[in-house]
């Protein structure tokens, strides 16, 4: 059986909200090392994945590997019943057809129980090689959200050009064109021990618009803004986003979720026809 106790419902709520518009249903793979998930959107352009490590839970028990097929819209509904600061216990018996949730208020004065029906899903997994990227960009997640929103006002795709001078995001459309250049700033690394605020409003003041860029080779990549905007739904979970890119392969966009794990998205690039 699986029994996992998570101190903050907001983490699970946030993860589900940041995936549910990209993926309708998928398997949660549970093992003694944690809970993971990987699924593509219907058009096979974007892949969403997350990992919640066993050590990140207050208590975690998984006797044997389980694949729990869930529909994200159902999960989202159930999790709306939890308050952000509730403790969540997730429980599934071996070979069960339901997934049980217990929400406990922090003062233990209220305990709610819900369950959702599990689905049999033939999940299609992709084998994603561990790869070194030519360019790794780290910026505040709220800045990334604003950037994607701003670019979307003008165009449908964004071109990321990373070079020695910095990284430039540019777009164009019917009404005109726009670009934003970020120069490398090391200050972004200084504030990780700062306010600890989660995304909104930036963190630690000076680095809110900073951008750290590690570059091995210049990279130029065109990406769909529709998907990037979907990825920014994970921004409330993390102060920072890390965008890893190489020419002509899918970009990886990662949001670390506290000490418990991460949400990672892959997006296939647009290339010359």
């Amino acid at each position: 059986m699986l029994e996992a106790r998570l101190l903050q419902a907001s983490i699970l709520k946030g993860i589900v909200e940041s995936v549910k518009d990209l993926v309708r249903e998928a398997n949660f793979d549970c093992s003694d090392s944690g809970i993971s998930f990987q699924a593509m959107d219907e058009s096979n352009v974007a892949l969403s994945s997350f990992l919640l490590r066993a050590e990140g839970f207050e208590t975690y028990r998984c006797d044997r590997n389980l694949s729990l097929g869930v529909r994200f819209s159902s999960l989202s509904k159930i999790l709306k019943c939890a308050n952000n600061d509730d403790i969540v216990v997730i429980r599934a018996e071996d070979d069960a057809d339901v997934l049980n949730f217990v929400f406990e208020s922090p003062d233990e004065s209220k305990i709610s129980e819900y369950q959702i029906k599990l689905l049999d899903i033939d999940g299609e997994h992709l084998s994603i090689p561990e790869q070194e990227f030519d360019c790794v960009i780290k910026m505040s997640s709220s800045e990334f959200s604003k950037l994607c929103r701003d670019m979307t006002l003008l165009g449908q795709t964004v071109v990321i050009d990373a070079a020695k001078e910095g990284v430039k995001f540019s777009t164009y459309g019917d009404i005109g064109a726009g670009s934003v250049l970020y120069k490398h700033s090391s200050s972004i690394d200084d504030s990780s021990s700062g306010s600890g605020g989660k995304g909104r409003g930036g963190s630690g003041g000076m680095s809110a618009r900073g951008c750290s860029i590690e570059l091995r080779e210049p990279v130029s990549l065109e990406l769909s803004l529709k998907y990037l905007n979907n990825f920014t739904k994970a921004a409330p979970l993390s102060d920072y986003v890390v965008i890893s890119a190489s020419n002509e392969i899918p970009v990886m966009v990662q949001f670390d979720v506290g000490d418990i794990g991460y949400i990672r998205y892959y997006l296939a690039p647009q290339i010359k026809d």
């Binding site: 352009v45 997994h125 992709l126 026809d273």
Partner: peptide, 14 residues
Amino acid sequence: AKKQTILSTYFLKL
């Protein structure tokens, strides 16, 4: 013109 690629072009399906 640019064409949207799909992930299975790059990653192996298991």
